[in-house]
Design a protein around this nucleic acid. Structure first.
Lengths: 120, 120
DNA sequence: ATTACTATTTAGTAATACTAAGTATAGCGC
DNA sequence: GCGCTATACTTAGTATTACTAAATAGTAAT
């Protein structure tokens, strides 16, 4: 089932960074505390490469912080202006996409359309 | 944006087959008429390999049909019992997953939670 | 000094979808 | 018959995204 995750992880990480400057390890733990049961457990090898991609794409910027009280040096990430714009587009697209998938599901015999669909 | 599609195409094809026995080319055209603007245009090289995977997994079964009035021979697919069960699980999982993603979006400043969420 | 926790990096692999081409059948007009 | 179009299926090669698994390194407590 993990395949559903593909593609939306980038958007989810952008969502988390949009809430305020943060760093990789914290993103990892927040990702795994909010929805790990559905998303599956994400490890370092999943999260860090996405951050590098997002930075290469100019959607987030990075600030080095020296070693904190406990642990190694951190790389704090924040959204760029372009990242904020892109995140808005991604969210709009995600919702259109989810709606489209729900339309396909709604035509399956025995699968009622989700309650929210008729309430929009 | 196309990356959202990854993983859910299998489920969408199962949804379409669940509506009744059908064949690859028709799946292709139905896929592209229902939501191509959001999903992106799917080609043969995308759809047929998925059908082979689904068949290998025992979720659909195949029946050959001789050349029809117009065009080549068709391979009609139908859900197996296992396919029907799996589709139900996939739909449940998809909805839990979409809900989880919406939760992450809901925490983004400026992004209101979708209306349906509060109505469930 | 060993353990535990924090924090980042990366090499190799797997899964999924896309591109782009090819094969083959049938009907139609000429 | 021949080319054209539409139908229908196949496949090789590539790209993208995520996962596995391991390594590196700093801090602090025992």
């Amino acid at each position: 089932m993990r395949q559903f995750k593909k593609g939306s992880l980038e958007m989810i990480l952008l969502c988390l960074i949009a809430q305020g400057e943060t760093y990789g390890y914290e993103l990892l733990t927040r990702l795994n505390s909010g929805g790990a049961s559905v998303l599956g457990y994400a490890r370092e090898g999943t999260v860090y490469p996405i951050l590098y991609r997002l930075q290469d794409a100019g959607l987030i910027r990075c600030r080095m912080a020296p070693s904190a009280a406990n642990g190694g040096a951190k790389k704090y990430y924040a959204l760029t202006e372009r990242g904020r714009e892109t995140l808005g587009e991604l969210i709009a697209f995600w919702r259109a996409y989810a709606r489209c998938v729900e339309d396909f599901i709604g035509e399956v015999p025995g699968e009622e359309t989700a309650a929210w669909k008729s309430s929009i």
